[in-house]
């Protein structure tokens, strides 16, 4: 997929910004995060007969203006979950990058190879910039504040996550015009009590080419 070069990406930071219609989209298939890799025996046992990863596809658009990359994610969701409620969890989404190329996506990296996650959750004012070194190890990534917003209408979430191309810290993927990076995606369906590594994810890394 391509991150289209635009003149001013700030016009695209609103999820429903009209400008996104001019950017090609790619639909990425998602699957439930496998249970055998989950770190909790409780989770492996209790979710064995449940649907993990209710959302099975996400539509992705990306654009940059040489200064900032914005990624728009859209997916169908009949239930808008915006907070921790009674036996329910907030909807969430992540754009993920391997910090140094080889991190496996299914385990969200390894002790040596991290996965950077731009994490949006419906109850958070600001998205979180996280790094994982294996499942269930997310912590705050070094530096790099993210911007993000989500909008739900007509049974569909539209979420935009963005970051300046330049970012310090080894947790943050290096972005530049003309560069291609690996990218993956996760969606959490709050009405299905998805949280942590109970989520849907893109089973492989995809390539994201930033137009020169």
């Amino acid at each position: 997929m391509k991150a289209k070069k635009v003149s001013n990406v700030s016009a695209l930071l609103e999820p429903s910004a009209a400008g996104w219609q001019k950017v090609d989209r790619e639909v990425v298939d998602l699957a439930g995060m496998p249970l055998h890799v989950q770190t909790s025996r409780y989770v492996r046992t209790v979710w064995a007969d449940k649907l993990v990863g209710k959302v099975r596809a996400v539509s992705v658009r990306a654009a940059h203006d040489g200064e900032r990359l914005a990624v728009q994610l859209e997916w169908n969701d009949d239930t808008q979950n915006t907070e921790f409620a009674e036996r329910l969890f907030p909807d969430a989404a992540a754009v993920m990058f391997p910090c140094n190329g080889d991190a496996p996506i299914v385990t969200l990296g390894t002790a040596d190879a991290g996965v950077n996650q731009w994490y949006w959750r419906a109850d958070l004012a600001q998205p979180e910039n996280l790094v994982a070194h294996g499942l269930s190890t997310e912590t705050a990534a070094d530096g790099a504040a993210l911007d993000g917003a989500g909008k739900w209408s007509d049974s569909r979430w539209s979420v935009v996550l963005s970051r300046p191309l330049k970012a310090k810290g080894s947790d943050n993927v290096k972005l530049a015009p003309g560069k291609t990076v690996k990218v993956g995606f996760s969606i959490w369906e709050g009405s299905n009590r998805e949280r942590g590594d109970i989520r849907s994810y893109s089973r492989q890394w995809h390539e994201l080419a930033l137009e020169a």
Partner: peptide, 10 residues
């Protein structure tokens, strides 16, 4: 060990 010094799900 993760690089932040926290153990991954011990």
């Amino acid at each position: 060990m993760a690089k932040n010094g926290k153990t991954a799900a011990p």
